[in-house]
């Protein structure tokens, strides 16, 4: 059947749910027919598009060499925004969930650089896929420091690493929180540091690593920070003349995304200003066109919503 809207997520099905310590469940997602999924980097993450419309980001914690499944660990956070509660209490094996393409991750390719991972609680998840990738490459030049209160999350997966001397547990129930400055040590060119944990830990980590080269630092946030705008990107307001609606376009967002986010169905295809699918008539303002399909004469009244932006605060469209 022809879908009415663009397919924007990868269709997956929950193939396994397994408890892994207190309040943590592992969810395995796979293609409904067993096709390979898009690849991911060690430490990468995906968005889960939950049935109630929430979108939540989780680190992938399986070996990136596993092409046929994504494994995410979810800690049930009773005081959170509800995504983890929904996953824990309502999601069942066999249920379909849309996911994004994998993003982010660590660069582990250079054998001359060893790795020190610093995790707080469930923040250990991105480092599990990183550890798997390093071990598969026959490397043992890494250490995982996990700061947790009592039994760590995903203890089944962590314990073998502790026994092998590759992971150090810092139990804050029995010992003081470790000094991250001591833990990371003085700056080194041959060591890369990565940290994932709650905001307080990230702050401490940033303070402890001010002397380190940014090239040797990687931070995974639980909640993504706002993306820095490109120097010439600016926010502006779209005025839709026919419907007398105003839409704010944040700096760096495309006009097309802003329109579609407000339910305005602009046809789209190439997304790069050459196919002509998303042409929109404009009535007032100063568009910056950036397309390669319209003639100067056409630009007097038409723009391509996928690439055009505005030089002024307001741009009026014939929509």
């Amino acid at each position: 059947m022809t879908p009415r809207r663009p397919i924007t997520t990868i269709r997956t099905v929950i193939t396994a749910i397994s408890p892994s310590g207190h309040d943590v469940k592992l969810f395995a997602l796979a293609d409904p027919e067993g096709w390979d999924l898009p690849p991911f980097k060690p430490g990468g993450h995906i968005d889960l598009h939950l049935p109630d419309g929430q979108v939540r980001t989780y680190s992938l914690c399986n070996d990136p060499a596993e092409h046929d499944r994504y494994l995410v660990a979810v800690k049930r956070d009773a005081s959170g925004r509800g995504g983890s509660i929904l996953l824990h209490d309502q999601i069942r094996i066999g249920q379909e969930i849309g996911v994004s393409l994998p993003r982010g991750g660590l660069d582990l390719a250079d054998p001359a650089i060893s790795h020190k991972f610093v995790a707080g609680g469930i923040g250990v998840t991105p480092f599990l896929s990183a550890v798997a990738a390093l071990q598969r490459a026959g490397r043992s030049d890494f250490t995982l420091h996990l700061v947790a209160r009592g039994t760590p999350p995903l203890a089944d997966l962590i314990t073998p690493l502790v026994e092998a001397g590759q992971a150090v547990l810092h139990d804050t129930r029995t010992r003081a929180r470790p000094d991250l400055a001591v833990l990371v040590g003085p700056p080194r060119d041959d060591i890369a540091l990565a940290c994932c944990g709650p905001p307080g830990m990230i702050e401490d980590f940033e303070k402890a690593t001010t002397a380190w080269s940014p090239e040797r630092l990687h931070i995974e946030y639980f909640v993504p920070p706002a993306l820095p705008a490109s120097p010439d990107a600016r926010s502006y307001t779209l005025v839709l003349a026919r419907t007398e609606t105003e839409i704010d376009v944040p700096a760096g967002d495309t006009m097309l995304d802003a329109l579609q986010a407000h339910g305005i169905d602009v046809p789209t295809s190439c997304g790069g200003g050459i196919c002509g699918a998303c042409h929109v008539e404009w009535l007032a303002g100063t568009p910056i066109h950036r397309d390669r399909v319209l003639t100067p004469a056409q630009r007097e009244r038409t723009l391509m919503a996928c690439v055009a932006t505005s030089a002024a605060d307001r741009l009026t469209l014939d929509l």
């Binding site: 397919i7 293609d31 096709w35 390979d36 999924l37 690849p39 092409h67 393409l101």
Partner: peptide
């Protein structure tokens, strides 16, 4: 070929 959007081609 591939079965679905975003999946790697086989």
């Amino acid at each position: 070929i591939t079965a679905r959007a975003f999946l790697p081609m086989r």
